[in-house]
Amino acid sequence: MNDFGDAHLRMWTLHLTALLAAGAQDQLAWLGNREWDTGSVVEELELLCRVSEELTERGYFEPENQRHLQTLGRCLAEIDTARRAGLWNDALTTDPVWSDIRTHARQFLLTTLGDWHQPLPRHFPSHTGPH
Rank of each mutant, 00 (worst) to 15 (best):
N33E: 15
L55W: 08
S52Y: 02
E54T: 12
R58V: 03
W36R: 06
E35L: 10
L48K: 04
V51G: 02
E57N: 05
T56E: 15
E62F: 09
E35Q: 14
S40E: 06
W30K: 09
G59Y: 08
F61L: 10
R58Y: 03
A29D: 15
F61S: 03
R34E: 13
Q25M: 13
A29I: 09
C49Q: 01
L31T: 07
R34V: 13
L55N: 03
E54L: 11
R50W: 07
T38I: 07
T56F: 08
E57Y: 07
S52D: 09
Q27W: 03
Q27E: 15
G59E: 04
A29K: 10
C49N: 01
D26S: 15
Y60S: 07
G39I: 01
L45H: 02
S40F: 12
L55C: 01
E35S: 08
E35I: 14
T38N: 11
S40L: 15
E43H: 09
Y60D: 06
T38V: 10
E57S: 04
E35A: 14
W36G: 00
C49E: 07
G39Y: 02
E53T: 13
W30G: 07
E43K: 03
E43D: 15
L28A: 12
L47H: 12
E44N: 09
R50I: 11
G59A: 10
T56L: 02
L55A: 03
L48S: 11
D26E: 15
T56M: 14
G59T: 05
E46M: 08
E57T: 09
L45Q: 06
G32H: 09
E44C: 04
E35P: 02
C49H: 04
L48W: 02
G39H: 10
W30A: 08
L31C: 07
V42R: 00
E43M: 09
D26F: 11
A29T: 14
L55Q: 05
L28D: 06
T38Q: 04
F61K: 01
V51D: 13
G39L: 02
W36S: 00
N33L: 09
L47A: 14
E46F: 05
G59L: 12
F61P: 05
L48D: 00
L28I: 12
T38A: 11
V41M: 10
E57M: 05
R50L: 09
Q25S: 15
N33Q: 14
L31H: 06
D37R: 03
L45G: 01
V51Y: 06
R34W: 07
E46D: 12
T56P: 03
L45I: 08
G32C: 11
Y60H: 14
S52L: 08
L28E: 14
Q25E: 15
L28Q: 15
Q27C: 06
L31N: 09
D37C: 10
A29M: 06
Q27K: 15
V51S: 09
E54H: 13
L31D: 07
E35D: 12
G39K: 12
V42H: 01
V41G: 10
S40K: 14
D37W: 03
T38E: 08
E44P: 00
D37L: 04
G32T: 13
D37G: 00
Q27R: 15
Y60K: 10
L48R: 06
E44F: 01
R34I: 09
E54C: 01
L45P: 00
S52T: 13
E44Y: 00
L28W: 05
E53F: 06
L48N: 00
